[in-house]
Amino acid sequence: MPPVPLSVLDLVPVTSGSDAAGALRETVLLARAAEEFGYRRYWLAEHHLNPGVAGSAPALVIQAVARATSRIRVGSGAVLLGHRTPLSVVEEFGILDAFFPGRIDLGLGRSGRPRGATPPAAGAGEAGPGEGTFTDEGLYVPPPFTGFGRLVRSPRFERQAELLQQPGARTPPYADQLAELFDLLAGTSPGARAVPGEGADVEVWILGSSGGESAELAGERGLPFAANYHVSPGTVLEAVAAYRAAFKPSPVLAEPYVVVSADVVVGEDDATARELAAGYAPWVRSIRSGEGAIAYPTPEEARRHRWTDEDRELVADRVDTQFVGSARTVAERLAVLRRATGADELLVTTITHDHTDRVRSYELLAREWGLL
């Protein structure tokens, strides 16, 4: 199989010793570099109440990135409809399209907790740990992470849900939200017009981590789908399979189109890359524990972390599926991911403590992949 396009997912990480303003400036610099390196699109994630990530308002960061670049597509990965209304999203992205016509991607997701949703009961959606498997292509698929129920019951998530909604507000079913959003874009919503937004030339994507509603709705509507190997590697294959099984041709796509994400760190050699990636495990632990993302640590700070067996189990699926090594090592592993999932495009997310190392990681991968 020939190489597929590579794109960038940026969480706007805050590193130890820096701050949110510095992280946002580095995002703009990285986007400029990614454009020069030949990456197809640059997506910004939405996260809230995480001290270690600064991408809480994708539309605002998209505007800064799009203004600093000229060719690369820029979008959200993803706007969380559980916290928003379809009208507010269409209006925001209509403004972006007006400023940067033909370059804006609108990636949509639900959220960890929609407005008005009841927290899951203890043990809901959780199962005991199992054994990981390897696909015929050699991709490691770990047991699905079983701690999301505990995560969304954490005090931080409770507080986040409180602050991201008006008192008494409830989120409509996701399918209804998508229907309203498309009606507003098309100008067919009864008694309502989104200006700007109506007729906007935005590319709409659905993001999902499992074979559930997001994958099925993306397929039924004939939209491109982004599957998260970097967030939920244990369920990526079922997500892609569910999307393809549900797919119906549309004016947007005649055939399914899948992008698959991966956590990547590339260094001059394997040992250097492992050193650059040393902060990843404690950073993931801070998120998975419900405390919120810490500022991304230096390798020295990471080595001071005291690990328990529970800590190791908490992050094992993410650490074991991070692609770390020389450009050749990582490119080979990405090729395996592509073959196993049938991905039409790969979405690379890289975090290192030093911004220069992060830019260099993307450059080395681009050269090995043939983008440069």
Rank of each mutant, 00 (worst) to 15 (best):
L372F: 07
H47V: 10
W43E: 05
V4H: 04
V90G: 00
A239H: 04
H83R: 11
T15W: 10
H83V: 11
E35P: 02
V330P: 10
R71P: 00
L314S: 13
N228A: 15
T298D: 02
G234L: 12
G149M: 03
F148S: 15
Y362F: 12
L364H: 05
E131I: 15
R338F: 03
Q177R: 09
F100R: 02
G55Y: 04
V315K: 12
A242K: 07
E345T: 06
A343D: 02
M1C: 13
A179C: 12
P172Y: 09
V315W: 12
S18V: 07
W205P: 06
L185W: 02
E35K: 00
W369E: 00
L237P: 04
D320G: 15
V319M: 08
T321F: 07
K248S: 02
S289T: 13
L44V: 12
P2Q: 13
R306Q: 15
V240Y: 05
P155S: 08
A169G: 04
T188A: 14
P58T: 00
P5F: 08
D344Q: 05
S232A: 15
G222H: 06
A34T: 01
S189H: 15
Y362V: 11
Y243H: 06
V202K: 05
Y39H: 04
D317L: 15
G138N: 01
A200R: 00
S209G: 14
P120M: 09
D311R: 10
A121S: 14
R73N: 01
T171P: 02
P143S: 08
A331T: 03
S7C: 09
L9E: 09
L364T: 05
V265A: 12
H355K: 08
L364A: 09
G107K: 06
V4A: 09
D19P: 04
V265W: 10
P251N: 12
L237K: 08
L346N: 04
M1Y: 13
L237A: 03
G138M: 06
V14A: 09
S261E: 08
L371E: 04
G222Y: 02
E332W: 08
G325D: 06
V260R: 08
P129D: 06
A281G: 13
S361F: 06
E301H: 09
V202Y: 01
P173A: 10
S189N: 14
Y39C: 05
V204G: 05
A33E: 03
R113E: 10
T329I: 11
E137Y: 03
A340G: 02
L163F: 07
G197T: 00
V319G: 12
P3I: 09
L49I: 14
V141N: 10
V141G: 10
S210F: 01
A343I: 08
V90R: 00
K248P: 11
